[in-house]
């Protein structure tokens, strides 16, 4: 049994993986509303159709515009509603037990941020309140994540800073050092990340994982050309499903060495995040006068 002892050692910022490629879905319907290469929707759709999963916990449209709500998709039509990134909190893990109960799933798919993948794996090893769930996680897909925002932050950024109505926004994106808001009528507003930083969810600032190291398969735009996604295949389960999906023609792929900007940028951003947040963790240790804030990586006390 191999255990890596330090998560933040240089060279481990991308986690363990068997394979890394640049990919996009071959399904035009998926790509129409995909954030990048439509990897999550396509892989879940394939796994659903092949019976590898009985359903997937994804985030779909909620009660307000751009407010996500976790839900269990058991058909490709339902999956299609969850395409794209919403940049605010969707507590997907909250459905992980319910999915095996009222939805009756024996093989669960779940998508989430790196911290949510950590929650899933902790849940499998230390299931304090997840009776009979640990053995039913069939496919956990992680998405790259620098930080997340509360819904009210997104509202303030879009309505106050970008001066657009949330309901008229077609797409949001963080890339090339900017927060991009695309309107239905074609208008584009970009905000420098300097403006968005203070609206970030505080809990993100102690996170030491950028590319969802604990997922079966993780994916994100960084490293790949526009319209494509970088994909890490990490576990045996992930490898098995990915290999079958490729054989079934679900994805076009390119070698990650042959695309720009490539893995180097992923590594750079991962190291930036980990270094910055590691510093936050250390500063929390001497936050008050001889008083520390809690460090979850040391103890639950």
């Amino acid at each position: 049994m191999e255990l890596s002892s330090e998560v933040n050692m240089m060279g481990t910022e991308l986690g363990n993986y068997k394979l890394c490629v640049s990919a996009r879905s071959t399904d035009k319907e998926i790509l129409k509303k995909a954030q990048d290469g439509g990897i999550v929707t396509q892989l879940f759709a394939y796994a659903l159709e092949e019976g590898i999963i009985d359903g997937a916990i994804v985030s779909g449209p909620g009660d307000e515009p751009w407010r996500p709500r976790p839900f269990v998709a058991t058909s490709v039509e339902e999956l299609m509603k969850s395409r794209g990134t919403r940049y605010n909190i969707s507590p997907n893990v909250s459905f992980i037990k319910e999915a095996t109960r009222s939805y009756g799933l024996d093989r669960i798919g779940i998508v989430g941020t790196p911290c949510q993948m950590q929650a899933v794996r902790k849940g499998q090893l230390y299931p304090a309140g997840l009776r009979d769930v640990p053995d039913k996680i069939a496919l956990a897909i992680g998405i790259f994540c620098m930080e997340n925002f509360p819904y009210q932050s997104i509202k303030q950024l879009v309505e106050d800073h970008a001066a657009m109505k949330l309901e008229s926004v077609k797409k949001m994106e963080i890339g090339k050092g900017k927060f991009w808001v695309y309107g239905e009528r074609g208008q584009v507003v970009q905000l420098p990340l300097k403006v968005t930083h203070k609206y970030e969810q505080p809990g993100c600032h102690v996170c030491l994982d950028y590319v969802a190291n604990l997922a079966d398969v993780s994916t994100g735009s960084v490293g790949s050309p526009d319209g494509w996604s970088t994909v890490f295949v990490r576990t045996k389960k992930g490898d098995d499903i990915w290999t079958k999906a490729i054989a079934a023609g679900c994805f076009e792929t390119k070698s990650i060495e042959q695309v720009k900007p490539g893995l180097e940028l992923v590594s750079k951003l991962a190291n930036e995040k980990i270094t910055k947040n590691q510093k936050t963790v250390e500063e929390r240790a001497k936050f008050g006068v001889n008083k520390a804030l809690r460090n979850p990586y040391l103890s639950p006390k």
Partner: peptide
């Protein structure tokens, strides 16, 4: 020990774990 300490990131684990469904998530917390 989580929200007051600036550590919650709204994953949903607590709501999933609660045996009496006493926990819901409102705006991610």
């Amino acid at each position: 020990d989580v929200i007051n300490q600036g550590l919650c990131m709204g994953c949903g684990s607590c709501a999933a774990a609660c045996p009496v469904r006493a926990i819901t998530h409102e705006y991610g917390k």
